[in-house]
Amino acid sequence: MARRDLIAALVLLGFTAGFGLLTLRLPDRGLPNTPGPAFFPGLITLALGILTIALLVRSLRGIAVEPAVLPGAVATRGWIAIGAFVVYLIVMPALGFLFASVPFFAVLTWVYGERRLAVVTLTSIAVPVALLVIFRSGFQILLPSGIGW
């Protein structure tokens, strides 16, 4: 049995069922004998269903070759990076681009293997400030301001 494909097939079966249900609830606003707003999503539900069942059958037959997994230490750093990303996005509207980006940059620099404190500190301040100046002053692109810049 191909474990990952089985998990994917089960998740997709759930998604297909939900998508199909929501499609059935769409209003039928169309001219007679012409497809309405639910027509195309209906076709996609059908395609998703057929392909998901094919993936499920294949995974149960154990045909698939499982792709390589990231080494443990790398996977841990990957989770830290994703976690930092989530926290960054949550706090940015409140803190603003600059105040949120500095600690985020510092965490990522560390995750990518930089251990010199001076380099981490310097770059995590310099790069977000530079980006802020370039985008806000140079290209007039507004960035979330929050409590700061």
Partner: peptide
């Protein structure tokens, strides 16, 4: 250095 390049790209993605 990747250690600086990759975080900078992450922030650019957000921007």
């Amino acid at each position: 250095p990747r250690t600086i390049l990759m975080p900078a790209i992450a922030i650019l993605c957000v921007v």
